[in-house]
């Protein structure tokens, strides 16, 4: 099958690869670009472990074809920290908001997308925004608290 030449921007860097027409963005990120921080938990858009931001929109990368990333800007967990951790990343560590950590990259990416739209979310708003990100270890309690404290820190209220 003829492959498709895809030119895209990932975490601020130019990236290009040859995609099978059936290949998902998730597989391209992981297998072609070596960005294995984005996880596959279901492959059907139900668990959110593969969450990335494409042109500012939170998407499940398992539901998007790699070829669709042509000309777009993709942000993954690997691009979240600069020299210092993003407040969400640091708060997740300090709150013990992760156990196995497998859902963590997707939840961090999704939470970042939330706080960019709504810097002062209620608990309920956080819970509904993250309802598409499954975590089987924590019961979500410490995740919600970590997002709240990161939001407060980012608002300068901490």
């Amino acid at each position: 099958m003829t492959k498709i030449h895809v030119t895209t921007t990932v975490n601020g860097d130019p990236a290009e690869f040859l995609a099978d027409p059936r290949e998902t963005l998730l597989d391209a990120l992981r297998d072609q670009l070596g960005l294995t921080g984005t996880k596959e938990g279901c492959g059907t858009g139900d668990c959110g472990a593969c969450s990335v931001i494409v042109d500012g929109v939170l998407v499940c990368s398992c539901l998007m074809l790699a070829a669709e990333a042509e000309g777009k800007t993709v942000e993954t967990i690997e691009g979240m920290a600069g020299e210092e951790l993003h407040p969400l990343q640091r708060q997740f560590i300090e709150h013990a908001a992760l156990q196995c950590g497998f859902c963590t990259p997707g939840i961090l990416v999704a939470a970042k997308a939330l706080l960019e739209r709504n810097p002062d979310p209620t608990d309920t708003e956080i819970r509904y925004w993250l309802a598409g990100n499954l975590c089987r270890c924590t019961g979500y309690d410490k995740i919600i608290r970590a997002v709240q404290d990161a939001a407060a820190e980012m608002r300068g209220a901490a």
């Binding site: 690997e78 951790l85 950590g101």
Partner: peptide, 18 residues
Amino acid sequence: NRPDGLDKVTGRARYGAD
């Protein structure tokens, strides 16, 4: 803080499929 926390919030931790 847990010792594996940093790897797990940055996507560096290597799981089975990684």
